[in-house]
Design a protein around this nucleic acid. Structure first.
Lengths: 336, 336
DNA sequence: TTTATTTCCGCAAACGATTGCGGTATGGTT
DNA sequence: AACCATACCGCAATCGTTTGCGGAAATAAA
């Protein structure tokens, strides 16, 4: 197996006794080049397996045909669905993707942004980390005229396209569903309120209660959006459990964790307490009872985000920024 | 927000009235450059936010400091764990990753290989697609002296490093566990036999039976490695169910699908039929009864694969190829 | 003062591709 | 015969960085 370096335009030129410029033009059927030469060059290129060096192209054109992606954690099903959607669409349009995970860490996110900028990505697809409180790293990106599309965990204050689920409406519908079932004391396991996702779902919760004229009680709001935090707050949660008849969690993981905790302590679901989640993670249909939740189309959102970004890259940004809102669908199962 | 193009070495040179070569050397403390000049250049570079253009670097050095990854599907937990492990390690060593999914499609895999080669990746991390039967695209990569590390779905016939779980041993242990429980007619839901993973797990199954002097019966081997295929073979499976007392599935998804099918038809698990899977997907501990399975450390395997690849890239390939075998651990839960 | 040695820096080519501009044939017009 | 247009192609600069080599200036040795 002998070493075989990729062939360049110069190599073709030498072999065919023409100049590199002629080869370059011949390969793209430039009218200046005779048909005969074009054929000769293209044939040779094909047989020699010529493939343009994207690094050289990127250097010349100052764009790399790659899209940078930053997401909190690849292993979460929602994010890997996003990725999958992005990847499928981007590849179809000739773009490659470069993926980073922030691990919910602000510093890592900043480093990721730098790394992707170093690689001269043409645009960024971002879902913000939980610990991110300022957006200067993104502002910097935008100042370089690199477009960003935020997905799900968006940033309100930056001029970008966005792709989100209708969190407000989804939460509102879900809580109304709980109310319709007869729940009147609904605990909300809330996400971080600096993230729009957490805020919007909380707003939906509030609105539903208002519509049913159920008073809002602050002590029924618990900042708990991971199983770990549920465990830590187990005591507090159990002390509340006798005065509630429903739980609306900001995501499926904490919903399931809460469900487990309650079941372990002898409560029946949905008999004594109804439980609802958000996101329709695969685990939702696997647990007993099956979790009632709100569907969130990760794959489609990813595709749409990639589409928005690539359109903007093509259109040179003349159009106004848009926020694509995906409708939320109730998935009523057994837990509520 | 005004446009701000990234600054180059030439810009620094002009600003400081020195040559680009001097700047380049000063930035890396080359002994030819006076301490004063070094300081001056580095200071200016820092303040101007200079960041080297990796495209130009890649063009010059003929390497891009990026690793190409091809996996079947990002949304499978095992693969996203792999990714996560790779990403964490690679970033620590200054490498970026470029990820492609083959969607279990041979043609897509070939295209992915080409795309990654076009991007002049320094090495490849690959988990082969199910529909891949020939390896010429990988051979081509190796002929360019681009190293590959195969992960989990490896290729025997190519000279590369590999990272696998001890599939044989895991399967053997699991089937022996079933036998110890008293099972004597164990159905095997097998994977494609052209994949080593499928072959090795089948071998483990056979060996365990031999050790217990239980005759091997061909009619108890079903090529079924996805829920969809289980559904399609439901009839056949149900026709066998009365003469079996255990199922060993090549992965957790088909194990759970089979479990569901049996439960729906009134069979109790593990009472009448014990069911075991492979992989310890998150779903394993969510289903009822909780699935007994074999643990597979995706994250660690990913890290190890990245480590092997980066070492080889650094060491210029003087060492012999190695196959890192991760031990398999039984996760005995409730289903068997 | 001449020669040898350091010290410090710049020129220019190279990586692979693109592109404006200019140049040489060839043929056709007057 | 002199002129113009057209068809076809090459030169050289450019993107940003690296690096071998050579050269100037300063210092040391003879």
């Amino acid at each position: 197996m002998k070493k075989y370096t990729p062939i360049s335009i110069g190599d073709i030129a030498k072999a065919l006794n023409v100049s590199p410029s002629t080869v370059s033009r011949a390969l793209k059927n430039h009218p200046d080049i005779s048909e005969a030469t074009c054929r000769k060059v293209q044939e040779y290129a094909r047989e020699a397996g010529y493939r343009p060096n994207v690094l050289a192209l990127g250097l010349k054109h100052r764009r790399s045909m790659t899209i940078g992606i930053i997401i909190p954690e690849i292993v979460h099903h929602f994010f890997s669905s996003l990725l999958s959607g992005i990847e499928d669409l981007a590849y179809g349009k000739g773009y490659r993707v470069m993926i980073c995970q922030s691990n919910e860490d602000y510093l890592r996110e900043v480093i990721n942004v730098k790394a992707l900028m170093d690689h001269r990505v043409d645009g960024l697809l971002v879902s913000i980390s939980k610990s991110t409180l300022d957006y200067n790293h993104f502002r910097e990106v935008l100042s370089h005229e690199i477009p960003i599309v935020f997905m799900d965990r968006i940033c309100d204050e930056l001029p970008t396209d966005r792709v989100v689920t209708n969190d407000y409406e989804g939460a509102r519908m879900m809580v109304k569903h709980l109310l319709k079932r007869g729940c009147r004391s609904i605990l909300h396991l809330a996400g971080p309120q600096h993230l729009c996702v957490g805020r919007e779902r909380y707003r939906g919760y509030q609105q539903a209660l208002r519509e049913y004229r159920v008073p809002l009680r602050d002590e029924l709001i618990l900042r708990c959006d991971t199983p770990a935090k549920i465990d830590k707050s187990a005591h507090q949660l159990l002390s509340l459990v006798d005065e509630i008849d429903g739980i609306f969690a900001v995501n499926d993981f904490s919903a399931v964790a809460a469900m487990r905790l309650l079941q372990k302590n002898g409560y029946t679901i949905p008999g004594q307490i109804a439980v609802a989640g958000f996101g329709d993670d695969p685990l939702a249909s696997l647990v007993k009872p099956m979790l009632t939740t709100v569907e969130q189309r990760g794959y489609d959102m990813g595709r749409e985000a990639a589409r928005l970004l690539i359109n903007r890259l093509a259109g040179e940004g003349e159009t106004a920024y848009q926020t694509k809102v995906f409708p939320a669908f109730l998935k009523v199962r057994d837990s509520a």
